[in-house]
């Protein structure tokens, strides 16, 4: 097995009496595409926010790129990219201005920002839109831009929270091509999704139910284990028992 870049051990987050994430333990290795599945309200986003250093765990341990989630959140932040469920580039800035701003606060030099920005815009085919406000772009383009900005500073790991929600199938396919390209360059991808076809694209997936990880394996092994023909059936078999939903 390759070097682990994400390790969690009984990682837990409580909000009062509510246990959002309950003692989850797993490892993700470098360059892996790790699918993080679960029904709405299963605790995926909470877990991901802890791994990104946005939320302090209640108990348990985790290390991201070798840094501790309690004490070294700022070092973690230097080494990861994050794309939240909610679109969070600045809608009142242009494509180029967003790239410049996020490049700048990750500490990239101005020539490097310019060079990377040009390449990014060319790869996305956004030459015509580079000077348009981001708010005016269609959702699919926004999401692709968001992803590109999240990996602008060459992070070791990128966390994607439902990156393709509401996006058309063609754009989703393009999006996954971008994910594969990043993974080929050695970036570890940690992604949540509700699309089971996307789950099939992952190297390994975990399925969370009511705050716990109920299954973790390659898509093929999971289907075998549950005697299911598709990931849909696997998911259904596990999530059916869920007590909480949104």
């Amino acid at each position: 097995m390759k070097e682990a870049v994400i390790t969690t051990d009984k990682l837990t987050k409580r909000f009062g009496d509510f246990v959002a994430t309950n003692e989850i333990s797993f490892e993700v290795s470098r360059g892996e595409i790790f699918g993080f599945l679960g029904a709405n309200g299963a605790g995926k986003t909470t877990a991901m926010r802890m791994l990104c250093g946005l939320s302090t765990p209640s108990s348990g341990n985790a290390s991201i790129a070798g840094f501790d989630v309690y004490r070294q959140t700022e070092q973690i932040k230097k080494n990861i990219g994050y794309m939240s469920q909610k679109f969070s580039l600045y809608e009142d800035l242009t494509v180029l201005e967003n790239i410049r701003f996020f490049g700048g606060i990750y500490g990239l030099s101005r020539p490097r920002i310019r060079e990377k920005g040009e390449k990014l815009i060319k790869d996305l085919g956004l030459e015509q839109e580079a000077k348009k406000l981001v708010g005016a772009l269609p959702l699919g383009w926004k999401q692709k831009l968001s992803f590109s900005v999240a990996i602008l500073h060459d992070p070791q790991i990128v966390f994607l929270d439902e990156p393709t929600g509401g996006v058309d199938p063609v754009t989703r396919r393009q999006f996954w091509n971008m994910i594969y390209e990043a993974a080929d360059r050695g970036v570890t991808i940690f992604v949540t999704t509700h699309y089971m076809d996307e789950a099939e694209y992952c190297n390994r997936i975990s399925i969370m139910v009511d705050g716990r990880v109920k299954a973790l394996d390659t898509p093929r092994n999971l289907k075998e284990h549950f005697g299911a023909a598709t990931m849909d059936e696997v998911f259904y078999a596990l999530a059916r028992g869920a007590k909480r939903s949104e």
Partner: peptide, 11 residues
């Protein structure tokens, strides 16, 4: 707008 989250996840 949620943009502060994108700031908070930077160093």
């Amino acid at each position: 707008a949620g943009t502060i989250e994108q700031i908070n996840v930077t160093p």
